[in-house]
Design a protein around this nucleic acid. Sequence first.
DNA 1: TAGATTGTTAATCGATTAACAATC
DNA 2: TAGATTGTTAATCGATTAACAATC
Lengths: 225, 225
Amino acid sequence: MNSKPVSLQLFNRLTKYLYFLEAFEEGEIPEYISATTIAKDLNYNDVQVRKDLASVSSGGKPKVGYVTRDLICDLTSFLGHDNETDAVLAGAGNLGRALMNYENFNNYGLNIVAAFDLADKVSEAQGFFKNKKVLSFDKMGDLCKRLGIKIGIITVPAEFAQEVCDIMVANGVRAIWNFAPINLKIPDYVVIKNEDMAASLALLIKRLKRKEDTKIRLEAGLKVD
Amino acid sequence: MNSKPVSLQLFNRLTKYLYFLEAFEEGEIPEYISATTIAKDLNYNDVQVRKDLASVSSGGKPKVGYVTRDLICDLTSFLGHDNETDAVLAGAGNLGRALMNYENFNNYGLNIVAAFDLADKVSEAQGFFKNKKVLSFDKMGDLCKRLGIKIGIITVPAEFAQEVCDIMVANGVRAIWNFAPINLKIPDYVVIKNEDMAASLALLIKRLKRKEDTKIRLEAGLKVD
DNA sequence: TAGATTGTTAATCGATTAACAATC
DNA sequence: TAGATTGTTAATCGATTAACAATC
């Protein structure tokens, strides 16, 4: 039922397959779809697509492919786009508010039950942001425990992140979604996903520079390694 | 000068090394730091740390390690935290505003020169958000071309993302940072980095569920695969 | 000299791709 | 039957780890 751990790569590819399938207008969904078709659109190897699909679906039919609607269901359920999960958020600054307000999360089953911040931020938000409660930090641990919250989102500045994380973990949170650019220490029964915007952007810029260099070298007839 | 392409994994690890080194208070920075020390703190294999560092630094000294300050410089420059780059942003919604307002980017050298959105959003923002200009979409292409902007950030809803992307690319943008949950089509002289918040969160939840299942199975004395 | 550490070479592991038989 | 496609087994590729010699 719950075999191998999913690698980031596999998970991201599966997500792209679902996006591709969901791009069909209702009523224009083809009955069957082949791995070859998906692979061509996403610029992937078709054997890889088939292998990936094998990990979520009950299989396709030679010559025609996979039943599109079944595949959509299988992907949706595997990716967990259909389940509802509660979370708390620490740090109601700009990024935190963006997440609180991100409509997509509701579609994908995330429910931020409350946000926490320093007292002045709380009163600035008048205790609410877009119908979500904003509370003072000292209420966080208690609420996590009382509601049995398993997911904590950290969007506070790096210097407070470890402290916030510790409080969450001490009160039953078992998954941390961390946006602070810092390496958080957690016990090994807690899972963490770091979302480092600045690092991510830095990599994009690095790759852009590399591509530009390569282009210049090619034009100049220099060796490209 | 610009040898192999950097893998995502390597880049992320290098970023963590730098965070670790930057965590020392000024004045308490040790003269030397060993790969073993870094590895222990981040829970990595020490040979890997040494190999990673070899790709950015001129090498350490047996018995003592690497000169800490030199290493910080090498990492900073390799990761590009010291260069200044201009970008435009399409979609001044909540996420877009969060990015416009994200102080870290300034530290890491990103300069969002202007944001673009639909006319009503522009007037709502009164043409500005936190001293950044918000303009109407139809001015985007022209501005990209005029200022020679190479980086475009896409935070519009999925259904407009391809169109926005095409305009950017047609006007000289060569790197796309895409937050819309859609697979954008780009020519191969353009680099892209997808930032799919919902997918990222879904993976975290998946791993949390898996860990909980494993725990329950262990407690029940069942087979864990 | 002994011990901690670097850096290289070889072995292992995992993920991707190629080759091909099975199927409708 | 022929052709497109699936799915499996083997080969390749890349990244991580282990073993070990070199060094201060």
